[in-house]
Design a protein around this nucleic acid. Structure first.
Length: 1004
RNA sequence: GGGCGGUUAGCUCAGUUGGUAGAGCACCGCCUUCACACGGCGGGGGUCGCUGGUUCGAGUCCAGUAUCGCCCACCA
């Protein structure tokens, strides 16, 4: 056996205690110290005495047991943790003189071994016995005997609300503010786990910014505007809105959820009141969810997209656009949903694969020279045909350009035109242009200056009267029919006339739908309000580049969209529950409405409803009368309101308020990537035009939530998981953990496994906090007390973590910050705490300085861990923080400063590396592995640990050797030189020389 | 048709300047209750979609390609 070459007497300030006080367990010594000397003392068999003996050396209890001159560990009163059985042995402690002169090293190490593996368990028992609930009341917020996550949500949500923890400071300057353009959820929609997912991402950022010292402006809006709400109100109350009816203040709904099919017609204002009643209920449900989830929203900063402010802001912004000529009105072909009977915008389209059939139809050449075959999927539009078109280079049709043909059945003479959009290889290469079958028709119609022959009505049926020049008799057979019925009839008629060549060929092709609609869109001519976007393409593209995108690749989504813009933004909708246009039109003496000179409302009068308000210079009696006026019947597109959410939340409309200037341009727009072309784009359009600015500097895109089959979750698919159930089952912190693990923009699976891990982490934080605070007594950390190299090494690591996590958050990579912090935290629990807990408890042989060093390092690290985890696990971190901080006096953990590396400067002293700490836990891991391989408990005593090292590991390891020995129950450590000829680990080989596999397990 | 992203252990996913493949879960084994059994320790498991190229060296860079998903498009 090699003699230890380690330090003599004192190791890094660890001073060996007097021999007389050493507790020795006989059995352990017999089992493990066989190679060393005989025992010198009898063990003390009584647990109580052991406990007492070990406890007396604990710095944490000294102050409250015996006022001695040697110990003053805490600046303020620690826990009352001394065991009842404490005896006056305090003074046996000798912290000044190692006096090892009479001892040979063998004895010294053996004794140390005995102490460390014999005492700590009993030591550790000390606080547990000594922490009756009554005493714990001395804690700021009673640390429970058995910590639990249950009930934390309700408890802390209440505290935060009454304390105003998340209130925005309206006096903060723009530089001090961090403002968030929170997405207003559609309250009439169902709650689902996707909400929880993406809002959690935002909340982690908000909490980080708040702790970083920013005044966080984090409002909540409710999107109760638009069609989903209308649809619910119609079905729930059994009513229909009718803009032509007068408001009836006495009117009350007769049905609640049991409405008959024939609906009652009510005025727009009555209808809107119902919408507001119903959505108010929905908002409560959402708020409950958000509070349970722990969103750090300022609940004083709320709005609804249909409330008075939203209407005022929308109308004000509209009037300004109209004044700038950015908004204009036009009668033009419009994308039209025949069921909702409203115009829809390009952004609200989606393609759906539909069954269709090519019908090969003969057009007779007017010169009598035969027929030209076209192929169409919409033969029912034959009566609406205004031209044929082929590609200018198509040799087959070149001869016919400029000539005319006659439409089958209806006998209309139409020109044959050339246009580059016509595709040579599609169908027969020549297409019929109808007004209007699709958007290409509109392009051709406009660019080739063709006449209009509209036959599809706003209800989707063929209109009653044939357009001019169309044969009336055949037309009568399709009039009044739906498109589908008309198509069947036309096929019959074409067969009868022999102008259908062959049978229709079935195909599948994409057809444009309104995203909320059930039947394909039609294109009808109507008068609508538009906002210019196409002409601003370049400016918008520049704005898109100026936004910082998280993740960056999402930028191309917007650029794609901007490049593909093919028309201005149609903002008027022929619906009821929305923001009305603050516009009237005069009516001339003949009853014709004058649309060219709209009468705009005065900004000061907003919000107004032109259906009930009277324009200046008119009386209400003149409404809808010749020489009178009429109100614009339409409402704004939901995105026309949503696109000014920064202005709404910032109270842009409030005359005396400077709030808007303090929060705009905002810092962050979080949202789903599915609404880049709508919400993100339109907000950009509005801010660009109105403020010549970005609406916000960053946008954070969340991914989709997928069910376990990797399908997008949606209500219609019936695979939606109710978030409330998950929150109840796993706890809010656990759900937040799951959400925060997902990188920005990454589609994510609902994963109960990940939620369990989050719960595990939260529970671990409870227990680790309880344990550490049990050791330190909850005293505040004092960086100057950290002296041990091993403690400083851990803090070096911690400072790296803080720097990295802070950087992650700055880059909106909350997930990486969480990953790092979580990983460090488990290492802290498994390695550092295990390594130093015996020293921190302060067994007899350990110096006060060494013990305090561990205690204060533990305090520093615990405080840092709790704060770093606070953005992710707000409930459990507040709970454990409250155990050792007076939350009432010094505030919530969520308003504490975010950790900075400056906090560690003093504590780290001159130590700049974690070499010793790293090497020590590395060796400790090897010891564990060896014990596991020997199928022994981690507490199994090791008599002699041999470390063969190719490098000078000894020097590195020495400062932490006593901790290593204590944590590994190791009596002695021996260093050897590695044989360079043996294949081995490049750094070292650990051999547990003397585990006696036949020995009995250590006695309890 | 244009664009974007994914493809790494059975599963869910990391892998930041190219340098000996990672985590958690699941699985297997061990340790029992001395903060935590809602625990601890350890182990097995991957030719990083495929093919080329650059390089001393490629999961990482380049060029193709397959496949899944998404966005966009003038889809007769």
């Amino acid at each position: 056996m090699t003699w230890p070459r380690g330090p003599t007497g004192s190791v890094s300030g660890v001073q060996f205690g007097p021999v007389e006080t050493t507790a020795i367990a006989t059995d352990e010594l017999e089992a493990t110290a066989a190679a060393t000397d005989e025992l010198e003392e009898e063990p003390d068999e009584t647990g109580a005495t052991e406990s007492a003996r070990s406890s007396v050396a604990r710095p944490a209890v000294l102050e409250s047991t015996e006022p001695t001159e040697t110990v003053e560990p805490f600046e303020r009163s620690p826990l009352e943790v001394q065991p009842a059985s404490v005896t006056d042995t305090t003074n046996t402690r000798d912290t000044t003189d190692p006096t090892d002169t009479d001892m040979n090293r063998d004895n010294e190490f053996r004794r140390e071994h005995c102490i460390t593996h014999g005492s700590p368990p009993k030591n550790a028992k000390g606080p547990k016995q000594a922490h009756p609930a009554g005493n714990l009341g001395a804690m700021k917020n009673a640390m429970p005997e058995k910590p639990t996550l249950d009930g934390l949500e309700a408890r802390w949500d209440g505290v935060w609300e009454s304390a105003g923890t998340y209130r925005f400071d309206p006096t903060a300057t723009r530089e001090q503010v961090y403002s968030i353009d929170t997405p207003p959820p559609t309250v009439s929609g169902s709650l689902h786990v996707g909400h929880v997912f993406s809002y959690t991402h935002t909340d982690t950022i908000a909490r980080f910014q708040r702790m970083s010292g920013k005044a966080v402006f984090y409002p909540m809006g409710w999107d109760d505007n638009g069609l989903p709400t209308e649809r619910r109100v119609q079905n729930f109350y059994g009513v229909n809105g009718d803009a032509s009816l007068p408001y009836d203040p006495e009117w009350k709904p007769k049905h609640f959820g049991d409405a008959p099919k024939d609906r009652e017609s009510i005025s727009r204002r009555n209808f809107i009141e119902l919408c507001q009643q119903l959505t108010a209920e929905d908002e409560k449900v959402f708020e409950t969810l958000w509070r349970t989830l722990g969103l750090s929203v300022d609940w004083k900063q709320t709005y609804a997209t249909i409330d008075e402010r939203s209407q005022r802001v929308s109308q004000k912004a509209f009037l300004r656009m109209a004044a700038r000529k950015q908004a204009y009105q036009l009668e033009a072909p419009t994308l039209w949903d025949i069921d909702f009977q409203t115009a829809v915008a390009q952004a609200e389209l989606e393609d759906r694969e539909q069954e269709a059939a090519y019908h090969r139809v003969a057009f007779h050449r007017s010169d009598g020279g035969g027929v030209i075959f076209i192929e169409t999927t919409r033969p029912e539009l034959l009566a609406a045909c205004v031209a044929l078109v082929a590609h200018p280079d198509d040799e087959r049709y070149k001869p016919f350009f400029g000539t005319t043909v006659t439409t089958p059945l209806f006998g209309v003479e139409v020109p044959v035109k050339a246009h580059p959009l016509a595709q040579i290889d599609k169908g027969s290469g020549i297409a019929m242009i109808c007004t209007f079958g699709d958007t290409t028709d509109v392009t051709w119609w406009r660019e080739l200056q063709l006449p209009t022959r509209a036959i599809i009505g706003r209800n989707g049926r063929i209109v009653a009267d044939a357009p001019e020049g169309v044969a009336a008799e055949p037309y009568a057979r399709i009039a009044g029919k739906t498109a589908k019925q008309a198509q069947a009839e036309i096929v019959i008629m074409l067969r009868e006339s022999g102008e259908l060549d062959g049978e229709p060929r079935k195909i599948k092709h994409p057809v444009k739908f309104f995203e909320k609609g059930d039947r394909p869109l039609e294109i009808v001519t109507s008068r609508q309000w538009y906002v210019r976007t196409v002409n601003d393409r370049e400016a918008l593209m520049t704005r898109a580049e100026d936004i910082t995108w998280h993740p960056p690749y999402m930028q191309s989504r917007l650029e794609n969209w901007i490049e593909g813009l093919n028309g201005d933004w149609c903002i008027s909708r022929q619906r009821f529950f929305g923001v009305p246009f603050p516009v009237w039109y005069s009516i001339d003496a003949y009853g014709e409405v004058n649309h060219t000179n709209p009468i705009f409302a005065d900004e000061a009068s907003l919000p107004i409803d032109p259906q009930s308000a009277t324009p200046l210079g008119f009386t209400e009696a003149q409404r809808n009368q010749p020489c009178g006026f009429t109100g614009d019947p339409d409402v704004m597109d939901t995105w026309a309101t949503s696109s000014v959410t920064p202005q709404i939340a910032g109270q842009w409309d409030e005359p005396g308020s400077d709030l808007f200037d303090r929060i705009f341009p905002m810092d962050l727009r979080p949202q789903g990537h599915d609404i880049i072309r709508t919400w993100l784009f339109t907000t950009l359009v509005r801010a660009n035009a109105e403020h010549n600015s970005l609406p916000w500097n960053n946008t954070l895109l969340s991914g989709w939530i997928l069910d376990p089959d990797r399908k997008k979750m949606s209500k219609s698919k019936g695979n939606v998981v109710t978030p409330i159930h998950m929150l109840e089952e796993y706890g809010s912190d656990a759900i937040r953990y799951w959400a925060a693990c997902a990188r920005p923009g990454v589609d994510t699976t609902v994963d109960p496994g990940q939620m369990k891990i989050g719960r595990k982490l939260a529970i671990k934080l409870l227990n680790a906090s309880k344990f550490v605070l049990g050791i330190t007594g909850g005293a505040p950390a004092d960086a100057t007390k950290v002296t041990e190299i091993i403690d400083r090494g851990m803090l070096v690591r911690l400072s790296h973590l803080v720097a990295a996590a802070t950087q992650d958050f700055t880059e909106y990579d909350y997930a990486r910050a969480l990953e790092r912090t979580e990983s460090f935290f488990w290492g802290f629990c498994d390695d550092y705490v295990e390594l130093v807990k015996i020293r921190a408890y302060g067994a007899e042989a350990i110096s006060l300085e060494a013990s305090l060093s561990a205690q204060h390092a533990l305090s520093i690290c615990l405080s840092t861990m709790q704060r770093l985890l606070a953005p992710f696990l707000p409930f459990v971190t507040e709970e454990v923080w409250s155990w050792w901080h007076d939350v009432d006096a010094t505030g919530s953990i969520h308003t504490q400063p975010w950790p900075t590396t400056n906090e560690f400067t003093d504590a780290m002293g001159a130590v700049t590396t974690d070499d010793t700490y790293a090497a020590t836990i590395e060796v400790l891991g090897s010891v564990r592995r060896a014990k596991t391989e020997a199928k022994r408990s981690m507490r199994w005593p090791v008599d002699n640990l041999l470390i063969k090292s190719a490098l000078e590991l000894e020097t590195t390891l020495t400062p932490g050797l006593e901790d290593l020995k204590a944590a590994g129950s190791i009596a002695a450590v021996v260093f050897g030189t590695a044989n360079p000829r043996e294949p081995q680990d490049p750094e070292y080989v650990v051999t547990l020389a003397l585990i006696d596999p036949n020995a009995a397990p250590p006695k309890q």
